[in-house]
Amino acid sequence: MTRIEFWTLTRRLASYAVLSAVTFIVCFPLVWALSTSLKPKSEIFATPPTLIPHAATTENYKALLTGRPQYFQSGGQQVTSGTTPAQFFTRWFVNSVIVTLGSTLISITISTLAAYSLTRFRYWGRTVVPYFSLLGYMVPSIIFVFPLFLVMVQLNLTDSLLSLVLGYVCITLPFCMWLMWAFMRSIPIEIEEAALIDGASRLQVFRQVVLPTALPGIIAAAIFSMIVSWNDYLFGRVFLNSLDNLTLTVGVMLFFEGTHVDWGLLMAASVLMTVPMAILFMALQRHLVAGFGAGAVKG
């Protein structure tokens, strides 16, 4: 082994060691949540705590996915005690999926069209819009939430998933707009011009040339939008009222705010609500770096 090879190897090993240590610390909370979610009640509070459950069980997941009710004793009978959060878990999950997809679809459509228009046409005000979007992107939700809530009251839309879809459009659109604008700007205009000269219409050019080229940007914007919508708590908390209509984040907090915290159930719920984002993230990780590079850091 030459000296250079030796140093390379040592450096690599050192890098792996540091990377592993950092990754362990960063991932530990999630791993611990997963571990807790797989433990039976008796093992959750065991000392010493176990990282890998001795008697792993899927009870907590079953309870959430089958909506198991609670019972109590009265006069020797088992009586159901009415609704428990676990009974609504799958419903909340579906609600979250609906508002996430709905708001993302709307944000992406609007921002892609707008970004194309802003970067390919000349009209008054076209340079102002991106800055305006940037500002909107920075305005925190806490400022939007109550006025928008009063708008929803006026429109008679409170306690509906639609109100939340519109609310999420409001918080995701500025960033999507800005990101798409930055991305569209970086796409060379020559190909489109060539297509136009060849006799294609604007719409054809948009569909067949622009959209495919802009796809990485669209994906990045969509990931961002989905993360924001799926993870939001504030809007859901203020806009939604009845149990049937809650989203996951708002509903899962109900498991916590009761008088009795079932940590196993709570951690299982946490894991389940992280999984969709994890899948999305794994599938589209590369785009995230590329897209954020374009948007957040300016290309």
Binding site: G82, T83, F149, L150, M152, V153, N156, T158, D159, R237, V238, F239, N241, S242, L243, D244, L254, E257, G258
Partner: peptide, 21 residues
Amino acid sequence: EIESIPWDGVYVKLMTDLAAR
């Protein structure tokens, strides 16, 4: 249908639900 309102959240719930009509 019963909705259990955690005590610590009861004011948020009151405000938002009543104000939301």
